[in-house]
Design a protein around this nucleic acid. Structure first.
Lengths: 234, 234
DNA sequence: CGTTAATTTGATCGGCGTCAAGATGCGTGG
DNA sequence: CCACGCATCTTGACGCCGATCAAATTAACG
């Protein structure tokens, strides 16, 4: 069901897109490089909380960049067990599959706005523009690096180490003004870390009891001791 | 310790390299495409069992293709816990990192021969040859697809499901004449699946008791019922 | 303010890890 | 060809971490 609203049919080539400021974002936004090439059309779409953006196995027609909100990409087993592969936050690119079909499902975690470009125009641009081809490669390689780190977490870390790693990752990616505002629920965190939501909750409570973090609400967290958190990560 | 033997300093451009026949190998060997470009030098090296080919964090100077033998690539936690990300069998490419450093360690599982090309010459070729640039991207995307599947396994499958998935993967990749000859030990399998070697051994014994597989030796396995094995995979 | 989702916390269970002992296989040297 | 030594693999007993089941509390939202 594609019920999203078109909020902007196209961006003017003259208008420089201002990527949301994120600590982890490269100095030169690779999505800008590929999206501002001649012939590549960028649009904006919005999705409501929990709305599917694309499904696993569907043809990959577009490549996306989060403008506002957050996205989860995941795989399901037949009985409903879910593994979230990544969370995509403002500035992040997702949906870039080299094959013709998406290999994970993407859903909006909260109300979300994305920019998107047609995959076919990207492929075309890559055929004539070496810079675009190089960016496609390094963006996919960046996803691979994250997946490799996450395999180590899923296969070999304890519950507390997983939660510590998660907090440090989110701290790096979305802490603003000393505060981390998590867009995702405990179940999403559990499905990202290979844990149940109860185990995630217990680990966070324990870290709170130890004074390593403080809640202003369940999803608003302040890290009080990053060093001790890093020590808990293996 | 680079104690490997140079068995062939370079291949003649005229000689067509015959890749080992593997069921899963693409019709056109992508390594051949990139390795036979003008200016790209391919050599052969050999490593003894358990010898390190490169270490995590080392500069990535070469890209490799397995000719004979098998390779494991892995990450370690500080206390020695290990997660193997992939096994590389004859025909497989490994060591292709977009960044300047390897993100995993590579070791020979058995006595192994590899072909290799300098990463810098690949990068140079990608700058002028669109086909090479495209192959770099799709090879990295192929690694990413495997990593995504493996995250689902590590985070959400049971021990028996993990072993079933492993057997079906190895069956697809190395069964010859109805028989699967595993190059790796039980510990390697465990570190690949996020299990202990004992749990792997128990799962294999159970499958043998059920008649789903048969051992001719501990590492020589015949699958007797692929359908029942596929049913055990989630 | 009522309704429902999200989160926390407690009690119990079980799958897989840990520890240990034996069995099997294989390479090496006599 | 056989004996020995070592690595690998199997199997058993037991324990623990995280899952499951359940219920209370808090937060979000119309």
């Amino acid at each position: 069901m594609l019920t999203q609203t078109i909020t902007a049919p196209a961006v003017s080539p003259a208008k420089v897109f201002s990527a949301p400021r994120t600590q982890g974002v490269p100095a030169v936004d690779q999505f800008n490089v590929i999206a501002t090439c001649a012939g590549v059309i960028a649009s904006e779409f919005s999705y409501r909380k929990d709305e599917e953006i694309y499904g696993e196995g569907e043809p990959s027609e577009y490549v996306y960049q989060v403008v506002r909100g957050a996205v989860r990409t995941y795989k399901l087993l037949t009985d409903g067990r879910r593994q979230i592969g990544a969370f995509h936050l403002p500035g992040d690119v997702f949906g870039l599959d080299a094959g013709s079909a998406h290999r994970l499902t993407a859903e909006a975690i909260a109300d979300t706005t994305v920019r998107l470009v047609k995959r076919r125009s990207l492929e075309a641009a890559a055929g004539s523009n070496v810079q675009v081809a190089h960016n496609l490669w390094t963006m996919t390689a960046s996803d691979l690096r994250h997946a490799e780190d996450h395999m180590l977490l899923l296969g070999r870390k304890t519950a507390m180490e997983k939660v510590a790693t998660f907090l440090l990752e989110m701290d790096r990616r979305l802490t603003r003004a000393g505060m981390m505002a998590l867009p995702m629920c405990r179940r999403d965190i559990g499905d990202y870390l290979g844990l149940t939501l109860e185990t995630v909750s217990r680990a966070l409570s324990q870290l709170s009891d130890q004074g390593i973090l403080a809640f202003s609400s369940a999803r608003q967290i302040v890290l009080r001791n990053r060093q001790r958190l890093a020590d808990m990560d293996a």
